[in-house]
């Protein structure tokens, strides 16, 4: 995990077009989806419906074995290369929150997209899709950590084409 401030700092320093270049670099940083989730993804589970593109997001809260009460967040995700913006943003979420504690996810800023300087750059419609990815991550982490679960998140049915449109 990496503090949000450290991720946001270079974005905030750059001109809009360079911000897009920086975002582009993140498209290369999303780790491959662990094989054990491929079946869920292919079945259309755990999709972020508000996105224009098929975004698979499966946050997990792991109960650390030897320390009572300690939990770790894992971010598993897959986004096609044909949707580089959603892929890049998901990679940012991975960098920020994979390995974090549920409390760190809970305390993360609501206005993450503003802090990255992306809101104005992308426009409202696109921002809503990305905000939905972030919201799903936080809701799912909150749900799993308060329920005291350590298993995979709730499965949601996918809409007919797995996408919602602007």
């Amino acid at each position: 995990m990496k503090p949000i401030e450290d991720i946001a700092a270079p974005f905030q320093m750059m001109e809009p077009d360079m911000r897009l270049e920086l975002l582009l670099e993140y498209t290369e940083k999303l780790p491959p989806l662990p094989e054990r989730y491929a079946e869920m993804r292919d079945a259309g589970m755990a999709m972020v419906h508000e996105c224009q593109s098929p975004v698979f997001l499966m946050p997990e809260v792991e109960q650390n074995g030897d320390t009572a009460g300690e939990k770790t967040v894992h971010v598993h995700a897959d986004v096609p290369e044909s949707a580089p913006t959603a892929r890049a943003f998901t990679a940012i979420l991975h960098e920020a929150f994979d390995g974090a504690t549920p409390a760190q996810v809970r305390q993360a800023p609501d206005d993450l997209l503003d802090r990255l300087g992306l809101s104005g750059l992308l426009g409202m419609q696109r921002t809503q899709g990305l905000a939905a990815i972030y919201r799903r991550l936080r809701n799912e982490v909150a749900r799993q950590s308060t329920a005291g679960e350590s298993t995979a998140g709730q499965e949601t049915a996918r809409s007919s084409d797995g996408t919602a449109e602007a």
Partner: peptide, 9 residues
Amino acid sequence: NEDVLLYKT
């Protein structure tokens, strides 16, 4: 494009 980065790829 819908996606702002796609052209750059």
